[in-house]
């Protein structure tokens, strides 16, 4: 087993918290957009804390804390929040490109409105302080709601096969379309299936009819990590359908 949740209340519901650092909140909105499956999940989980969904001021004891956005260095509110989450949550999941790999916030040069106090940002996976506490990262900008649903199910069922790739991704603090070029195309593994192009939210990857490979436009990349995660040549611990 990878981890254990303690602190269950009488109803044995897994307590989730959503935390917002420096980001657009798109990941929390994606969570709310989990199609009709959301009510099913709410039978087993309780959203115990969220800046958007609950009125709570105090952070309660949590089983899983989902954190979106980057950590702004020197920003007192973030420092306090991260300390408190570390203390109160059993595990942390970095949700979305910003929290996981820096995402679009890698382009942040600080001193900008509306929050000029956020001058320098890093993904939470870069914080030594949270080493061991962050168990998984979820790529995407924002992650697809269906992905979040499947991830939550896997977390509740402790489906290690499903979770393993996202456990490994905790150690990547940067992602971009270059991953597709470096890890797949350069290594002679690309088959030209086009899946990475479909996974990319910004059209930074396009399919070249001439070479039958993806081409990468770095100017459009927001560093969300979806392309490499989606590519069938990157990791494959998923079941293959067998008929007959």
């Amino acid at each position: 087993m990878i981890y254990s949740f303690d602190n269950f209340d009488k109803e044995i519901k897994v307590k989730l918290g959503f935390f917002h650092l420096s980001s657009c909140s798109g990941c929390q909105i994606a969570f709310l957009d989990m199609f009709e499956e959301l009510p099913d999940i709410l039978d087993t989980v309780e959203i115990a804390y969220s800046n958007m969904l609950t009125n709570r001021k105090e952070i309660p004891k949590l089983n899983v804390a989902f954190i979106e956005g980057t950590f702004s260095i020197g920003f007192k509110h973030h420092i306090k929040l991260i300390k408190e989450i570390k203390e109160k949550a059993d595990i942390i999941v970095a949700i979305g490109g910003c929290a996981a790999f820096g995402g679009i916030r890698r382009l942040n040069v600080g001193a900008q409105s509306p929050q000029p106090s956020h001058q320098a940002s890093i993904p939470i996976t870069e914080l030594d302080y949270l080493k061991g506490k962050i168990k998984y990262v979820i790529p995407g900008c924002p992650p697809n709601p269906y992905f979040l649903y499947k991830f939550l199910l896997a977390l509740l069922e402790l489906n290690e096969e499903f979770l393993r790739p996202f456990e490994h991704m905790v150690f990547s603090t940067f992602a971009s379309g270059y991953d597709i070029l470096m890890e797949v195309v350069n290594k002679g593994l690309c088959t030209g299936c086009g899946t990475c192009i479909c996974a990319c939210p910004t059209k930074a990857l396009e399919f070249s009819k001439r070479t039958q490979r993806p081409t990468f436009n770095k100017l459009l990349c927001v560093g969300c990590g979806s392309c490499l995660a989606g590519c069938p040549q990157s990791f494959k611990p998923y079941p293959q359908p067998v008929y007959g």
Binding site: P139, G140, P143, N144, Y146, F147, L148, Y149, K150, F151, F162, P165, C193, G194, T195, C198, A199, P201, S226, A229, G230, C231, P232, K236, Y238, P239, Q240, P241
Partner: peptide
């Protein structure tokens, strides 16, 4: 495979 993987994990778009 690309379809199987994206559908199994749900990575990508709707």
């Amino acid at each position: 495979d690309g379809i199987n993987k994206m559908q199994y994990f749900g990575i990508g778009s709707n």
